[in-house]
Design a protein around this nucleic acid. Structure first.
Lengths: 165, 165
DNA sequence: CTACGTGCAAAGTGTTTGCACTGGG
DNA sequence: CCCAGTGCAAACACTTTGCACGTAG
């Protein structure tokens, strides 16, 4: 549904730049159609897609984009600090826009779903531990693997592909 | 469980079974020469070797062992809970005997060295967080990345990610 | 004795890259 | 207009697997 006073504008086949696209422009990246598209997909994602998933979503909007471009773009964005590469096991890297803020993850081992959380207490603790060991904390990774409260001692959950780690 | 004050009577032709070998036997694994060897290498390791490294060490003791066997054995041991698979970035899985006790890692981003540590406070916190989110904690991963001195390094430290040319 | 383990090489996966063409600034 | 970006397929690195043979139990 659109208001009748918003007719087709020549320039408007490109809607407002996405969050991530804006960041790209800020950092001086050349914005091609493909990058804009990937930026949009990332901006709209509320999960932690891997390259294959990004590609799947992108392809529905531009059938001729290639997976190599997704890899290249995602890597570029990582270098620019626009996304972070994650590894939740399963052998595929997953991507997480940094502008969502600092957070950690809880992975439901039965469904594979990923929950985000923050915990200031943990942040303090992590810094304290590093300090105790004689280090300055420059980064960290905390992942909790959990199972929904009522214990279900059934079979092993479907573990993802080849390498989990 | 066996109460063995007395050392298991040694088969005269074999040196004493390694820590890990004992665990393998306990879990009913068929002990071949190769498995015994890998068990020994793992028992003697004080670091977190990857498959290539395990293979390198094993080959010096049995020149005809194959890397496929190392992969198969290490996977078996993981399934039996005798080792844990880790991923510190770099695209290769690294292995950590579980009988060293529960611990986490601090990676020196400048040297790549890995320090182990424990922190009961963190354990409590992690469980509390999981509980708060409605989950029972079944596993977790905490990795701290730190730097020894405030002074800066030169170029890019060994970063996580796959091999790149 | 036999089911399982092993070595070898080939196949699988996820990711990167060389090359010729395209398009953004 | 020119160089960076792209698509394609081949190259890569790590890991798994099919097959024929060997061996622990």
């Amino acid at each position: 549904m659109q208001s009748s006073d918003a007719p087709t504008r020549a320039d408007a086949d490109r809607p407002d730049p996405s969050r991530i696209e804006r960041l790209c422009i800020e950092r001086g990246l050349k914005m091609t159609g493909q990058r804009r598209l990937i930026a949009r997909v990332l901006s709209e994602a509320e999960d932690h897609p891997d390259v294959e998933e990004l590609y799947r979503r992108a392809v529905t909007l531009d059938a001729k984009i290639s997976v190599a471009t997704v890899y290249r773009t995602v890597r570029l964005l990582e270098e620019k600090g626009i996304v972070e590469r994650r590894d939740f096991g399963g052998g595929r890297a997953r991507y997480d826009p940094t502008d969502r803020g600092h957070h950690h993850h809880l992975i439901d081992v039965d469904t594979g779903k990923v929950l985000e959380f923050e915990d200031p207490e943990h942040e303090k603790l992590a810094q304290a531990i590093a300090k105790r060991l004689g280090f300055i904390l420059v980064g960290q990774r905390l992942e909790l693997f959990g199972r929904r409260a009522p214990a279900a001692p059934a079979a092993r959950p479907p573990r993802p592909g080849k390498s989990r780690g």
